[in-house]
Write a protein that binds this DNA or RNA. Structure first.
Lengths: 219, 219
DNA sequence: GTCTATACAACGATAGAC
DNA sequence: GTCTATCGTTGTATAGAC
């Protein structure tokens, strides 16, 4: 599958290159002369395209053209379109990969696995990346749109539709609200005692509610 | 119903208050000459003090002194220290007043009332104020601290401790996470179909989980 | 020499036109 | 139903860096 390839740390160091517009010069084969940061140019181009046309509207070919490189570079650097999308989101972690890793197993305990895994990740990275995500979401409208599409796409596609056939989109939004809210309260606002509670306590408290959103009854 | 009594003097019962801390400044009695926006100055002073010393550490007297007005102005303009605190948070609504209004009644349906009331408020104000709150929380550390204290104080004091004696602080944080997360997903990110779902659907989906946080079993 | 970034070509799938 | 265009993806050869 198009999961993590070797060269793609999804967090992706900032780079924050300006809009990568391609030099339409003659592209030779082989390695280009030094200096051309293909990865960053792809990221910049992807942010423009994804924000402009959405996930389905944007195409790998156009993104690559905008970056001035071959479409195959998307696969080489990111492993596929979806990973490029999550990388363009600049999230502290790649929730798509996490979920793909955590979904297999007993569907009736998926809530526990999700909460446990996110706690592991967040406890190591700390709240700073989360705060950065929040700020960009609240500030830029494009970032909000991309994150919205991410929730609708990755959550629905990877998790909810596999365990609950009815109203997967609604369940995905509800799950997102609980996970997102937990992240804010525990890591950004640091409300006690939830901020310092051990994993077992948080899992025991939150997982049943998440499980109800996943497989429980809905009105 | 709302916050509290309008102009109730804070130290009402005990007359003969301290004459010891007389401000040596030459403040005249009666209405000051125009131009001085007492309310705004109190708000600014309150933000500094609350952010600096927390809710308990900050005193009305020091806030008033910093604003250059009499402490009685806090009662006159805001109705008390707590209302000044929530006003200084600059939240789009006053959750303290909302909760105080919604808590009385059957504790087993408190979750429904909370969700219903917040939906009413947010649907009229829209997502812009919420995004502003998010941005300030993610950006400034002082804002995060104030909001944290608000969640710990108002939620615990007004809601959870009245319906659930055991571990009220933990329950308050959990409730806050769900309500906060719902606000972000529905009004800031606008994830469909949750963003457009009618109130009955949202209440039916979220209220049971909130109710479990309020009165249900916890690990 | 090795290693890796790159370009080119082609494949299976899918959606729409006819 | 067939044909075509386009999509995402993959295999492979090549060019430069080391």
């Amino acid at each position: 599958m198009a999961a993590s390839e070797e060269h793609s740390p999804s967090g992706a160091g900032g780079a924050t290159v300006d809009a990568g517009l391609a030099d339409p010069g003659p592209r030779r084969r082989g390695r280009r002369p030094g200096g051309a940061d293909t990865r960053a140019q792809l990221l910049a181009a992807a942010r423009v395209e994804f924000a402009d046309r959405g996930y389905d509207g944007a195409t790998v070919r156009v993104i690559a053209e905008r970056a001035g490189v071959d479409p195959a570079m998307v696969n080489h650097w990111f492993g596929g379109k979806e990973s490029l999308f999550t990388a363009a989101l600049d999230l502290p972690v790649d929730p798509g990969a996490i979920l793909a890793d955590v979904v297999p197993g007993d569907p009736e305990h998926l809530g526990e696995r999700i909460v446990a895994r996110f706690l592991e990740i967040w406890d190591t990275t700390g709240g700073a990346p989360l705060a950065a995500v929040l700020q960009s979401v609240a500030g830029h409208d494009a970032a909000a749109g991309m994150l919205r599409e991410f929730v609708s796409r990755v959550l629905v596609g990877k998790v909810v539709s596999t365990v609950a056939p009815d109203r997967p989109e609604l369940r995905a939004g509800l799950c997102g609200s609980q996970v997102f809210g937990l992240a804010i309260i525990r890591y950004v606002l640091k409300v006690e005692p939830l901020a310092s509670a051990d994993h077992a306590t948080v899992i025991g408290a939150v997982a049943p509610n998440l499980q109800r959103y996943l497989t429980g009854p809905l009105p």
